[in-house]
Design a protein around this nucleic acid. Structure first.
Lengths: 341, 341
DNA sequence: CTCTGAAATGTAAGCGCTTACATTTCAAAT
DNA sequence: ATTTGAAATGTAAGCGCTTACATTTCAGAG
């Protein structure tokens, strides 16, 4: 049987209150000698407090929750890694929930919230969901949102600077490489990241005085397959683009496949650029030019915000912060200077 | 303030015991009408039981823990996916812990065990660790081990059939493709999977009457970089192998890089085969011939064993099961029939 | 109409801890 | 020696639930 605080108290000849104090935040309120004695007995009996009983008494679990739309893929594990790192060093346990075929994101959140299993949650919302708002306002635990959406301004929000990333790489294609015929494969319409990336692309073209060609904007779904289909659509146009800006690396990889299949050489016949800089980029030949995102930084930053909130529990609340993680461009060989022909 | 069982009881004009019964496993011990009334009030007040208080009273958390050596990479997320799927459908929550720079695997296990946060754990042990054994025997909660190690026979164990996989692909190289000069890059010596894969390779050579060439067995660390180094080592030998069996796909990818760099064409100048069939294989050109492993199946199978144990809590224990997940060969274009030259 | 026992419900203890408040201890001040 | 108040410790309630046991209800038997 596992030792309880009573066992320790009895063996040390003190009350359980003293043991609790010696082990908790008020160590200094117990005499150093007794404290020492208690420590030794704890070690001897291999005692460690039951965290669940502790919760019931303190109303704080020492855990934070991370809710993701999905768990597979480098992107999400990087986020987890970032969150894990910070929560661990802040002394918190991390519970991860993700939606899957049999559980949607709302259920995941509710699981945490309703059963009061966590002190706070980091919540990634990739696209609009009406239910979420009402849930969040109902349960009053601290929440940090990872999303590039409008609204939810009363919460801390963190996201990649999608707009800036897309703008920069488009501008790079135009100004540095001299391209003018640039198409984009954007992500799902309801996806916030996709929206911002598309906007960055459009604004960069506009600012350069280039026309926005509707046919060169095709929507897809952030998957490789989706990229393949979208690419072949673009290549079948009468007026073909010279470069495709795929809104993520998966779809860029899809472009590689299609180009390969149809006999286009990258970068000579078709330039491709991506977004995310996920791990598999290293395996693409030629190396993909893409927007680098410090994904784990998103996790770290958002968790820091959450811990800030948690430690301020009873003090006055600071106003919500809205942070963007900046991006950079990774130059590969998947697109070259425009040749005048 | 969140509603408690008292709120429900008061509003329904019954005792908390009745509410508890109406909501728990003994629903049938409360009159249908009262039950109905209680349900409605719960819905109205948006009540759901505090699972932590429930634990304290019942001594069962409704959660299982998954302890991984790491969380990054397709391999681990596939495992998580498998475990998640089964635990979810069995009504359990899943807590995932992994070691990282600041927390080793033993700490991860202890976190779960000591604080009694989980009813059982699925534990992946990739290499020998003496502490683990004593920890496991100290805390008597059900454990399923994912590992291809000897020992721990009193626990349920699940693993990939590493030996069979390695044997098969080596045999395939010999018998089907006619190769005789086959080198291997094996994983870390202390890693159980690596040990078994190496043994499979050796036995297949032996059984075919081929000599075991010490210089053709080089140890590495399952990383891409490690594969690169090991490959250049093999290619610098006076007597070069025709094919390299890399003990995982990462190292196989490393071989691709090195071959590329040194001017060897795959598969003409050098054949490469891998193990795992992780997602990025699709991006390797030419497509990698490798051993397919149903990774998520490992998670599913082990979790099923655990749930079996948990549901049998008080009945007689069944003897431990030791299961191997079988493998298959994915034929790519990274190795071709031996040409007589 | 009373009796009986199963069904329905209530009472209260207990799960392992924290903590407000009460009590005791003890060194320093008088 | 006595007083005093901070320091150290103890007492006991309470966190939200489950459940053994006690009590009440009530349909059917006598």
């Amino acid at each position: 049987m596992k030792a309880t605080i009573y066992d320790i108290a009895k063996k040390a000849g003190v009350s359980i209150a003293t043991v609790s104090r010696a082990l908790g935040e008020n160590r200094d309120k117990v005499k150093p000698e007794t404290r020492e004695k208690i420590y030794n007995i704890c070690k001897e009996l291999d005692y460690s407090p039951n965290s669940i009983a502790k919760y019931l008494a303190k109303k704080t679990t020492g855990s934070i929750g991370l809710v993701l739309p999905e768990i597979q893929g480098d992107f999400y594990t990087e986020i987890i890694k970032g969150v894990d790192e910070i929560s661990y060093s802040g002394g918190y346990n991390l519970l991860v929930a993700s939606s899957h075929s049999r559980r949607n994101i709302v259920e995941s959140i509710l699981g945490f919230m309703k059963e009061s299993m966590v002190d706070g949650v980091v919540l990634m919302i990739p696209s609009m969901n009406k239910q979420i708002e009402s849930i969040l306002s109902k349960y009053q635990i601290p929440v940090v949102i990872i999303s590039d959406m409008e609204g939810f301004d009363e919460y801390d929000k963190v996201s990649i600077d999608n707009y800036q990333g897309a703008y920069s790489i488009t501008e790079y294609l135009i100004k540095t490489l001299g391209h003018t015929k640039i198409a984009t494969i954007c992500g799902p319409e309801e996806n916030f990241d996709a929206q911002k990336r598309k906007k960055g692309y459009i604004d960069a073209l506009k600012d350069a005085g280039l026309p926005i060609e509707k046919r060169w904007i095709v929507e897809s779904d952030f998957t490789i397959k989706g990229g393949e289909i979208a690419c072949s659509r673009l290549l079948s146009l009468k007026e073909k683009p010279d470069v495709i800006f795929a809104a993520n690396d998966n779809m860029a990889a899809g472009c590689y496949n299609t180009a390969n299949l149809l006999g286009y050489k990258i970068p000579e016949d078709l330039g491709v650029v991506g977004f995310d800089h996920v791990a598999f980029c290293d395996f693409l030949k030629p190396k993909l030019t893409t927007v680098h995102v410090q994904v784990s930084e998103i996790g770290r930053v958002s968790t820091n915000l959450l811990l800030e909130r948690l430690s301020n529990k009873n003090k006055e609340d600071r106003p919500p912060k809205h942070l963007k993680i900046s991006t950079g461009i990774i130059i590969g060989n998947s697109v070259i200077k425009k040749t005048t022909n």
